[in-house]
């Protein structure tokens, strides 16, 4: 037995039972695979990042009024049509799983002006502004835009790593929650070339995210 703590530590760390059997071939293969995955992910992230920056930059520049800053443009009701208990249709595609009280706003501009206002709204595309009365899960307003031409613009808020984003059958989606505007945002491009934008406004974060999930997962994959 050693006679002080330092010597005991030296002896301990140098003891043979810290050896662990490792297979150099297996480790080498695992390292190679992980490096390959990392490289692929890095390239993918770079490409997506550059594309988002480029398209987002163009969108921001286009939305800037002369000498002013970016602003949210009011939407029109477009071709939105929905009766009680029916799915809404935009650009020929159904928007499903809307809350029971959701109705197209009579005055879309006025509905969009109700506080909290949206921080982001595509300028073009087939759109609907829905008021939810009575509120469902705290949700009071839903905005859906399909096939916007300014589809690449960024979303406000904090991106969420939501499990349901992986259930969109190939559509590449981004969802964020923006506390200041009490709104959950979603945007996605589908493999068939459709572009979606959904904004769900409500005081309760869990409530608005649940409504967003329901609409997106039941509407986007089929397009």
């Amino acid at each position: 037995m050693t006679d002080n703590l330092e010597q005991r530590l030296t002896a301990e760390f140098r003891a043979g039972d810290y050896d662990i059997p490792v297979d150099a071939v297996a480790i080498s293969g695992a390292v190679r695979r992980r490096r390959a995955r990392r490289s692929t992910a890095a390239v993918g992230a770079s490409v997506v990042g550059i594309a988002v920056l480029a398209v987002g930059g163009v969108a921001v520049v286009r939305s800037l009024p002369p000498g002013g800053t970016a602003s949210v443009h009011p939407a029109t009701s477009g071709q939105a049509s929905q009766g009680p208990g029916q799915d809404l249709r935009l650009a020929g595609v159904p928007v499903r799983s809307l809350p029971a009280g959701a109705r197209p706003a009579v005055d879309a501009k006025a509905a969009l002006a109700v506080e909290p206002t949206l921080e982001s709204l595509p300028e073009s595309g087939d759109r609907a502004v829905l008021s939810v009365n009575p509120p469902s899960g705290g949700v009071t307003r839903i905005v859906v835009v399909v096939d916007s031409q300014s589809s690449g613009q960024g979303l406000p808020g904090v991106p969420g790593d939501y499990e349901w984003l992986g259930r969109l059958q190939g559509a590449k989606g981004l969802a964020t929650d923006h506390a200041e505007s009490s709104t959950a945002y979603f945007t996605a491009g589908t493999p068939s070339g459709r572009w979606w934008f959904v904004a769900v406004t409500g005081a309760d974060e869990a409530g608005r995210l649940a409504v967003l999930e329901a609409i997106v997962t039941n509407s986007v994959p089929s397009t």
């Binding site: 037995m1 005991r8 530590l9 301990e12 039972d17």
Partner: peptide, 17 residues
Amino acid sequence: RAQDSGLGTVEDRDQLR
């Protein structure tokens, strides 16, 4: 748990670990 490698009692090494 430490193995007995002659560096002290197994109990001592176990305690140190």
